[in-house]
């Protein structure tokens, strides 16, 4: 059970504050709360409404942007400001597709660099460098590939992580030729 911080029960937390210094603090608090909440529930992608989209476990998850006990809920515009703060100020989230915001928001409670290092070490440890692994193998067959940390990982998140390794010259990818260019196979170098 995730223990919400005390501020989650503070009624004004759900109303965007007018004083700019206070608002900055408020948005930072929300940002930290989202990261802790997503980490606890292993949520990698959320909708703009705050609902978990892709999670690595199947447990019941309490709502993020509302607190029924005190009858408060953040308005849609305010949710957007909070997520924009997390994306642009704190640099811990990204739109899956900025042009299509309903496609979800990736939440980096672990940064892409941290994920990339973990993935590379896991492949190295299991002696699979230089062999081509499919996305299915990486995320579904944990005994074969990357381990529990990557099990059921959302494709969009995995793609971001692999792209980091490609930039670092540690991986090569095979992409689909259907025009979408989805990653199909990964080879660690």
């Amino acid at each position: 059970m995730f223990a919400f911080p005390k501020i989650h029960s503070f009624p004004p937390f759900y109303t965007q504050q007018q004083n700019s210094t206070v608002r900055e603090n408020q948005l930072n608090e929300w940002g930290q709360l989202i990261l802790a909440y997503c980490q606890h529930h292993r949520i990698l992608t959320i909708l703009p409404s705050g609902t978990a989209m892709a999670t690595q476990e199947e447990a019941e998850i309490p709502p993020l942007f509302e607190n029924k006990l005190i009858e408060r809920s953040a308005a849609p515009e305010f949710r957007r400001s909070i997520l924009n703060h997390l994306i642009h100020k704190l640099d811990r989230a990204q739109y899956v597709d900025p042009k299509q915001q309903d496609a979800g928001i990736l939440i980096f409670w672990r940064t892409a660099d941290e994920w990339a290092r973990m993935l590379y070490e896991q492949i190295e440890k299991t002696g699979q460098t230089n062999s081509v692994l499919t996305v299915y193998e990486l995320t579904q067959l944990d005994e074969l590939a990357a381990g529990a940390e990557f099990r059921n990982m959302d494709y969009n998140m995995l793609a971001r992580i692999v792209e980091v390794l490609v930039r670092q010259g540690k991986a090569q990818v095979l992409r689909s030729d259907d025009g979408l260019g989805r990653i199909e196979g990964v080879k660690m170098l």
């Binding site: 005390k6 009624p11 004004p12 109303t15 004083n19 408060r72």
Partner: peptide, 24 residues
């Protein structure tokens, strides 16, 4: 303005409440 109160637009019946933040 001086950060001594937080606004809450969601009081019962839509009434605005002004909260003293040391509560947190």
């Amino acid at each position: 303005r001086s950060g001594l109160l937080w606004v809450d637009s969601q009081g019962p019946g839509g009434q605005w409440q002004y909260w003293e933040p040391s509560w947190i």
